[in-house]
């Protein structure tokens, strides 16, 4: 048994130590908001916050999350959509939207650390998040509009 805190709740997970955190979330805990895109740490669709830091959950073994705090895209919306989520919806900043969970997590982490980034800084922060539909510009605009005071 491994215990960890997911979106504020303490959970016990009975899976082997090397199970990817993403599989634990999606299969064992039925938290499907973190998406599987590659399983190789290369697309960012599975991004979560582990003790506040963004990590690709598909490449994070369960043992690394033991006794840690995990926040997923669902957790960011626990008290209603967060500013990044509100802004993405307002700007209709998705096409298929499969990439968007990870982008919400990455952009939220960016705004925590850098509350007033430029467009170039937003794009650089999203460098490891892939979007195949070509929605890049709208996403960057939506993140800029979610900066404190720009709403």
């Amino acid at each position: 048994m491994t215990s960890l805190t997911v979106n504020g709740s303490r959970v016990e997970v009975d899976r082997p130590d090397d199970t990817p955190l993403l599989t634990v979330l999606r299969d064992a805990l039925s938290l499907v908001g973190s998406r599987f895109g590659c399983g190789q740490g290369l697309c960012g669709a599975c991004l979560v916050l582990l003790d506040g830091r963004p990590v690709t959950s598909c490449e994070t073994p369960l043992w690394q999350a033991a006794d840690a705090t995990v926040v997923t895209v669902e957790g960011l919306a626990a008290d209603g959509p967060n500013p990044v989520q509100q802004s993405l919806i307002k700007h209709q900043a998705a096409q298929c939207g499969f990439c968007i969970s990870g982008i919400v997590v990455r952009a939220t982490a960016l705004l925590e650390e850098t509350p007033d980034p430029s467009a170039e800084e937003v794009a650089a922060a999203l460098e490891r998040q892939l979007c195949r539909c070509g929605t890049h510009q709208r996403i960057v605009e939506a993140v800029l509009a979610a900066r404190t005071g720009s709403a």
Partner: peptide, 8 residues
């Protein structure tokens, strides 16, 4: 879009 952005 709301479902997708909120991770539902």
């Amino acid at each position: 879009l709301p479902d997708k952005v909120l991770g539902r």
